[in-house]
Design a protein around this nucleic acid. Structure first.
Lengths: 201, 201
DNA sequence: ATTGTAATTTGACAGTGTCAAGATTGGTTG
DNA sequence: CAACCAATCTTGACACTGTCAAATTACAAT
């Protein structure tokens, strides 16, 4: 038995892979995707420049791994929100909008990693990331259909298309807030309400 | 009179500044913002690595200049669309949505420069760029109010907020299409229609 | 103890943006 | 016309970046 799972603890450092991921997450939170440098990362973990290459093919794969983790958590949050039986469905949807925008603003750098260009441009996304992200969207679609059935999203529209457009709306608003184009987050509540009014009926 | 306007033609190269801008625009169209390199740019124009520094403080200012140019053109297009008296107002708005998405997809790299993170993150935008972009948004607001008055955008909402949200919707959809998240542009028409149905009434 | 193999490091290369100092050039002035 | 001068452009240099190939280290099994 010569194979050792690289994710298991190794001798030199306990779970270097995990430490790399943790440190990268920290760097992203602090300075955004563009602040992630493999060499600074190595310094932070206390390892040589190219050590990360044994666990991640290149920088892109490392970032995709982090993004994928983000989508997994996102999925869980989504489930929690829409399984909360204490609120009426329409309130849950309003809560979802609120949660979306709040999360995006408070975790701007991480949101930017997940939905930003660095990863999605010209098919650089890992297969794993694509799949996980696709699952999240599937959830969004079924959730949309459910809301249509419950009568507060327009039933005339195709669910898939409607899911795209509603999600696009939230995504767009989030981007405006994060990048500070034409907006700052001081009026986030009003924007959420306005969006809810437009989308729901 | 010792001053010579740097924008005027110089002796070594006729209007180097203009040539730099042109070449940069080309690079953006070909490979996106992230493909712009000052050294490759210099090569392309046939000048030394640091020549551009005489006309632009740094790379960021160069990009902002290009983006600003984009916003000026954007402004003109917007005027054209909403001054077209041959169509009824509602059709003009639908046409605007169509134009927006088409432009974004067909000039993805340029759209990305104008509305993407590279320029807007943490206040790196030039004052000039900010102003020009702000003017465009102002137009969007007055246009929104006009549409509210004409009765096909909800009159109950605050114009500024509504302008933000409608624009956010288009921006979000454009980003989804450009980055290829959950979508490709083969269903752009349906997405435009769906968005129009949601926004207008 | 030796061998094998996985983990890690070192060296190197081709890029990048940007600063400081030097070289070039053409118009203005003595 | 010659000298100067300031705008323009180039060269050299520095500190970064990602990534590959080869050498080194360290542990497990024989």
């Amino acid at each position: 038995m010569s194979k050792i799972k690289p994710t298991e603890k190794s001798y030199h450092h306990d779970d270097l892979r995990g430490k790399l991921i943790d440190a990268t997450r920290g760097m992203i939170r602090e300075g955004g995707v563009e602040a992630v440098s493999l060499r600074k990362l190595a310094d932070r973990v206390g390892v040589s420049r190219t050590a990360a290459y044994h666990y991640f093919k290149d920088k892109n794969v490392l970032l995709c791994t982090l993004a994928q983790e983000g989508f997994r958590i996102w999925q869980e949050e989504l489930d929690n929100i829409f399984q909360d039986e204490t609120k009426p469905p329409a309130d849950r949807y309003r809560g979802y909008i609120r949660w979306y925008m709040t999360y995006a603003v408070e975790n701007a750098e991480y949101y930017d990693l997940m939905f930003g260009r660095a990863i999605w441009k010209q098919n650089t996304a890992t297969e794993g990331l694509k799949k996980t992200a696709y699952d999240v969207f599937q959830k969004q679609v079924t959730m949309t259909r459910q809301c249509q059935d419950q009568g507060f999203l327009p039933a005339t529209e195709d669910s898939l298309r409607l899911a795209q457009v509603t999600w696009g709306t939230l995504h767009g608003l989030a981007r405006l807030l994060i990048d500070g184009i034409y907006t700052d987050d001081s009026h986030m509540d009003e924007m959420c309400d306005c969006a809810a009014n437009l989308l729901m009926r």
